[in-house]
């Protein structure tokens, strides 16, 4: 198996499963943290990911899970041939207005299903064909609280500001148009106003 990507959460390998090309996502032990913390986090996140992926699949595009192995903390998923939205924005392959609205609609779908993703970055969004696939549900939570949904948006907004500073406002304004939920946006403003720095 060859390493395709070494992320913060997991390492991805290219593999074959019943003859089809797949990706094995393995949450390897982190050498920097003690075993007790490492065990809790890896176990919790893989369970969460499997559960939330299943729920999320009803409203967003996400790769199919083919096999879950709790022993080595790995998930086998269908392989996604595409590139990250991060890379595509950097290479000017995305229209910020269209992209913003598209992402807004996608997040709204999740939130209506009471899912907060909690790591909404453009590294976790992959364009395949005409559609955006969302990955990495390890930190996601099942929540009806508007506060959690607003925090989810805040993570995305701050990521835009740091990573895509040339087009962050354009994407964000259009994200709001696609998201179309004034109540959550209002809550987000409240959180920002009481935040430490903003």
């Amino acid at each position: 198996m060859n390493v395709v990507y070494r992320g913060a959460e997991a390492t991805l390998y290219r593999d074959k499963y019943l003859g089809i090309p797949v990706i094995k996502k393995e949450r390897k032990p982190k050498k920097y943290r003690i075993r007790e913390i490492d065990d809790i986090i890896r176990k919790e996140r893989i369970k969460k990911e499997v559960k939330m992926l299943k729920k999320a699949r009803e409203v967003v595009k996400t790769p199919h899970t083919l096999q879950v192995n709790l022993k080595d903390h790995s998930i086998v998923m269908e392989e996604l041939e595409g590139s990250t939205i991060k890379k595509r924005i950097e290479e000017n392959q995305e229209n910020p207005q269209k992209l913003g609205r598209e992402i807004g609609k996608m997040i709204r779908g999740l939130h209506d299903k009471n899912i907060a993703h909690n790591d909404l970055t453009t590294s976790n969004m992959i364009r395949k064909g005409g559609e955006i696939f969302l990955i990495d549900f390890g930190m996601a939570e099942d929540t009806h609280r508007i506060e959690n949904k607003a925090m989810d948006l805040l993570v995305f907004k701050k990521m835009l500001k740091s990573t895509h500073w040339k087009v962050d406002r354009e994407i964000w304004e259009n994200m709001k148009k696609g998201y179309r939920d004034e109540k959550t946006i209002k809550k987000l403003k409240e959180i920002e106003e009481r935040a430490r720095y903003l």
Binding site: I37, I41, N118, L120, T121, M139, V155, K158, M159
Partner: peptide, 8 residues
């Protein structure tokens, strides 16, 4: 408690 939100 272990509190992490994205990169925050």
């Amino acid at each position: 408690p272990y509190t992490v939100k994205g990169m925050d």
